[in-house]
Computed example of a mutant assay.
Amino acid sequence: MINIEVCVSPELIHLYDTKGKNVVIVDIFRATSTMMAALANGVKSITPIMDLEACRDFASKGYTIAGERNGLTAEGFELGNSPLAYFNHAYAGKKIAMTTTNGTLAIEKTKDEANQVVLGAFVNLKATAQYLINQSQDVLILCAGWKGKFNLEDSLYAGALVSSLHPHFQTDCDTAIALKSLYESNSHRLQIFLGQASHAKRLQNHNIEADIDFCLSVDLYDIIGFLEGDELVGIPSKDN
């Protein structure tokens, strides 16, 4: 049986072995949700960058640059971290360079040793689960958290993915067991339960409730997002 584990923060990733595993990066509010919206709306690729200045330099290479810090669009960037910006194929065919507070850091910390880095979001939960079931690698779900701390929305998604993978996987990871139970106890009231999350409240203070609603929508897209070289790309799940 294939094994599944959950790490609730990039600050704890040193406690886990990522080598040869399919690592699912989760940043529900909002990086991985935004990335999936972009890829589903025809963006050619997304290059995740840790540093604001390095990301800004990509503008001269023909990229559209997207930068977010603390929930706000970074100065000098065309885009921030809103999934709604990509709706209606607004950036179809474009190559995006993106840096965010938490999500791009999580990708950077795992990409060298992982068998594959996969994007995790509620908007394509079923497609991602089916993709992982069809693979033969162990799975590690890495929650981006908030500045190194545990957060509710990423952890609840981790529980949702563990639940969706059952019974195809086994686990002796207490975190995975606990978060599966947490999700299954609250799946019927996802919006209400995650409305309590500290980051949801931070985003509400920026008047972007529509972003939150999108990020908590389940199975809007039937595509997989994953890292290919240094770029995040999307493929239809029917190709798995």
Rank of each mutant, 00 (worst) to 15 (best):
T64E: 10
L15G: 08
T171Q: 03
T104P: 04
N134R: 14
Q196R: 12
H89P: 03
E209K: 05
I223L: 15
G234F: 05
S82H: 01
A97G: 00
E5Q: 15
K94W: 09
T100H: 10
A38G: 05
I177F: 11
E113L: 13
I235Y: 06
A54R: 07
E11P: 02
L232V: 13
R56I: 01
A66G: 11
S185G: 03
S45H: 03
I46F: 10
L156H: 14
K111L: 01
G76F: 06
A127L: 08
T99N: 09
P83I: 02
K238A: 11
N41W: 14
T175K: 11
S82P: 00
Q196T: 06
V26N: 07
V123F: 01
Y91L: 06
Q130C: 11
N151T: 13
A114L: 05
V6G: 08
M35W: 10
F193D: 04
G145H: 05
G20E: 13
I133Q: 04
A129P: 09
T171R: 02
G229S: 07
V162Y: 12
V8T: 14
L119I: 11
V118I: 15
F77P: 01
G234I: 04
E75F: 13
Y221A: 02
V233E: 00
A127N: 07
S198P: 03
D211G: 03
D172G: 02
I177Q: 13
F58T: 04
A97P: 02
M98G: 00
N115Y: 08
L220S: 04
F169Q: 07
S45Q: 08
Q116V: 09
A38W: 06
G103V: 06
L12A: 12
D239T: 06
P236I: 01
L125C: 05
T104M: 02
H188V: 00
T32H: 00
V43G: 03
D222Q: 15
I208H: 03
L72W: 07
Q204T: 01
L182D: 15
N3T: 10
Y157L: 10
W146F: 09
V43N: 01
M36V: 09
A37W: 03
S181L: 09
I28K: 09
D239S: 07
T101Q: 02
G120W: 01
R202W: 05
N240C: 09
L182I: 11
D138R: 01
F87W: 01
Q130D: 15
I28R: 11
A92M: 12
C215D: 03
V162I: 12
T100V: 10
K111R: 12
I49Y: 02
E53C: 04
A197D: 12
I212R: 10
K95H: 10
L140D: 07
D219S: 04
E113W: 01
S217E: 14
Q116L: 05
F122Q: 04
D230N: 15
T64M: 03
K111M: 07
D174E: 13
G76W: 05
A106V: 02
